[in-house]
Design a protein around this nucleic acid. Structure first.
Lengths: 182, 182
DNA sequence: CTATATTATGCAACAAGGTGCATAAAGGAA
DNA sequence: TTCCTTTATGCACCTTGTTGCATAATATAG
């Protein structure tokens, strides 16, 4: 039920093709959502069956035909209804912690490798986020940030604060592990 | 494929009933995993079919019979195989951000209510975590923390650092929203 | 000249997760 | 005395997510 509202949200901003929607997960939208192209196309035909979106088929001679999807009146209502109901808390699911629960003095190296890989990914994310922030959201640029971009920036900030906290936690875990299992 | 390893991890520590496993999500294990009882029982019978766990049926006159599950040799191997392969990065999915993407000058109140509800939940979590840390993980207690409890504490610290970062982000978002949409 | 990437769509099968319903006995609250 | 909670288990259905496969044309890289 979630991807549905992601797509409705994106289509309310701008009509586009399934392919455009899929690609949007590769850039800014990817800070807070991801889905495969199969999922997106399946969901789009379900939304179309439910009359929440319409599409115009565009003939292209060079490439396969494309469908430009747009939000219908009912779609808009469905989105706004969803916005009214407060979200319920999502359940925490952290596989890294599941793995670390298995830590003991015999597998310290294995756990340390896992933590190392995780740290590297996190450090890379941190660097990427920082570059993006500097390039597109300098204090000057922030002053004239268009309204529809504010929450994209907020999503980036969420990523930055989360990854910073995660890296701080990784430091703690390594200290804890060293103390407990030499 | 994830709940499977959660259950194997828990059962390697100690044999127990499905009911015990379900209840474990209400306490410490809940910091990093949650599952309904239906999910747990279904997964347990799948694990049993796959011979990864064994169970002893215990007759009870007053209550329904119970099954005490324990990890089998193959189960132990399966768990250790899983531990060897590094985890792949999980995909970010943040419904709050999806919702906030819909923020505009006409629905500021709605968005503010959502943020307020979220802040309250987070503040409550923060308070709960802090009480637990003070009660069970004081500096004195930490010195004599049993090895098998270290990662439970790490999970708590993860929760604390995450909720702190989340609350800091909520402050930022409210400032951003006020600036953008009055 | 061949292979891969990009644009653009989709089906089928399966795995995993969520929701609702059901059973059954004991104990405590109202 | 009736209802709710706790202990203890489970099925069935529906939705969601993942993986693999398929098509088809152009452009670019090696």
């Amino acid at each position: 039920m979630s991807l549905k509202y992601v797509l409705l949200t994106l289509l309310e901003r701008e009509s586009r093709t399934g392919y455009d929607l899929v690609r949007s997960f590769d850039s800014a939208v990817g800070y807070f959502w991801n889905a495969s192209h199969q999922q997106v196309y399946r969901e789009l035909s379900a939304l179309s069956d439910a009359k929440l979106v319409n599409f115009k088929q565009i003939k292209q001679d060079d490439k396969p035909d494309k469908k430009i999807y747009s939000l219908s009146g009912t779609g808009k209502t469905a989105l706004h209804d969803w916005l009214e109901n407060p979200l319920k808390a999502g359940k925490t699911k952290d596989l890294l912690l599941v793995k670390l629960m298995n830590a003991n003095s015999d597998n310290t190296d294995q756990m340390q490798r896992e933590l190392q890989a995780n740290r590297q990914r996190s450090t890379e994310m941190q660097a990427t986020y920082r570059v993006i922030e500097q390039q597109y959201y300098s204090p000057t640029q922030l002053k004239s940030l268009p309204d529809d971009q504010v929450m994209i920036y907020a999503a980036l900030r969420k990523g930055i604060l989360s990854v910073d906290a995660h890296l701080a936690w990784l430091d703690e875990v390594e200290t804890l592990m060293n103390k407990a299992f030499q």
